[in-house]
Design a protein around this nucleic acid. Structure first.
Lengths: 163, 163
DNA sequence: GAAAATGGTTACAAAAGTATAACTATTTAG
DNA sequence: CTAAATAGTTATACTTTTGTAACCATTTTC
C-alpha cells in the first residue's frame, strides 16, 4: 500500500513538472503582449484577491519573494490604482496593502484577456474533454493550494507566522 | 448545452490561471537553489526528452522562444554535455540538437531534486487525495500537451511547419 | 550564375526577477 | 531609557529573459 502511494506521488510530480512550462508559455507570453503589468505584479494581485488585505511581509511570504521586490511590485500596482497602502494604527511600522475595486475589476479583465487564445483552443475540444479538464484542473488547484500557498515559505527573516 | 460548455471552459481557465504561479513557485525556486541550470535550459531539455532530436528552429517553435535565445540555452547544455549538435548532411545550414545519455540521466536527477520538497508535502496527504492528484494532473497534462505543445506558436519567421 | 530565401549565430539593449546590504522608523525587551 | 528586534524602503548588482538588427553560410529560385 505504501508502495502504491509512492508510485502515485511520482506520477503526480512527473505530470506537474510537465504542466508548468505549458502554463507558463500560455499565460506569461500573452500577459506581456496584452497588458502593461508584469507577471510579478499580477501574482501580488492574485494573492490579494484571495486575502483582500495583507502586509508587505505577508505578501512576500505567500509568494516567496524578497521584501524589496514586493515593494517595487506594489509600487507599480499603486500607480495603476489597483491596490492601496493602509498604515496600521496599532503598529505604524506595518504597511497593509488592500486591493481596490478597480484592482478587482482589472484583474478579472486581465485574466480574460490573457486566456483568450487558450479559450479559443479549448472551444475546439470535445465536450467530455472540457468537462474532464474543468474537473481535473479544479482538483489540482485545490490540492496545490492546500499544500503550497498556506505553507508560506520563509525567505525573509522571521516572516512566516500562522494565520 | 453550448452554455454548459462555456461554464466549464471558464472554470478550467480560472483554475489553470491559479495553478500557474503555484507550480512556478514550487519548481523555479528550487531549480535555482539546487542546480546550475536555468529554467530556460531545462525547458529545452524537456522538449528534447519528448522529441529526442530537433533543429534549433523547431525548438524555438515548441517553446515560443526567439532563436538567439535558443542558441544561448543550447550552448549551456553543450557545456554540460547534456545535448550535442549534429550537422545535417542534407542541408548543412540546419543544426540538429540531440539529447545525450548524460542529458537524460541528469534531467531525471534534476527533476527528482527540484521536486523533493513537494514530494515531502505530498507524502503527508491522505491516500485518496494522492490518487486524485495523480489522475487529475495526468488529465490536465494530456489535454494541455494536446492543445498547446503541438500547436507551435510562430514567433520567428516562418518557423512553424506541420510535423 | 546572380538574387532571394532560409537556418543559425553574434552583438546588443531593454525589461524582469533575484538577492543583499544599508538605512529609517517604530516597537519591544531588559 | 537604552539596546535589540521588526517592518519596510532605498540602493545596488547580477542573472535571466526577451527582442531586434546585422551578419554568415547554405540552399533555392529564377
Amino acid at each position: 500500500m505504501k508502495e502504491k502511494n509512492k508510485i502515485s506521488i511520482d506520477s503526480a510530480i512527473e505530470n506537474l513538472i510537465s504542466i508548468q512550462p505549458l502554463l507558463s508559455k500560455t499565460f506569461t507570453r500573452s500577459l506581456r503582449a496584452k497588458t502593461n503589468l508584469n507577471p510579478g505584479s499580477l501574482y501580488v494581485l492574485g494573492v490579494l484577491v484571495r486575502h483582500e488585505t495583507l502586509s508587505m511581509s505577508e505578501i512576500g511570504c505567500k509568494l516567496s519573494m524578497p521584501k524589496p521586490h514586493i515593494t517595487s511590485l506594489v509600487d507599480k500596482l499603486i500607480v495603476e490604482e489597483m491596490v492601496e497602502r493602509l498604515y496600521d494604527p496599532n503598529d505604524r511600522r506595518i504597511v497593509n496593502v488592500r486591493i481596490t475595486e478597480k484592482g478587482l475589476t482589472d484583474f478579472n479583465a486581465i485574466k480574460f484577456e490573457i486566456s483568450q487564445e487558450l479559450r479559443h483552443d479549448l472551444e475546439l475540444l470535445a465536450k467530455d474533454e472540457i468537462e474532464i479538464l474543468s474537473l481535473a484542473s479544479k482538483h489540482v488547484k485545490d490540492i496545490l493550494l492546500k499544500i503550497i500557498v498556506e505553507k508560506s515559505t520563509c525567505i525573509n527573516s522571521n516572516c512566516c507566522k500562522e494565520e
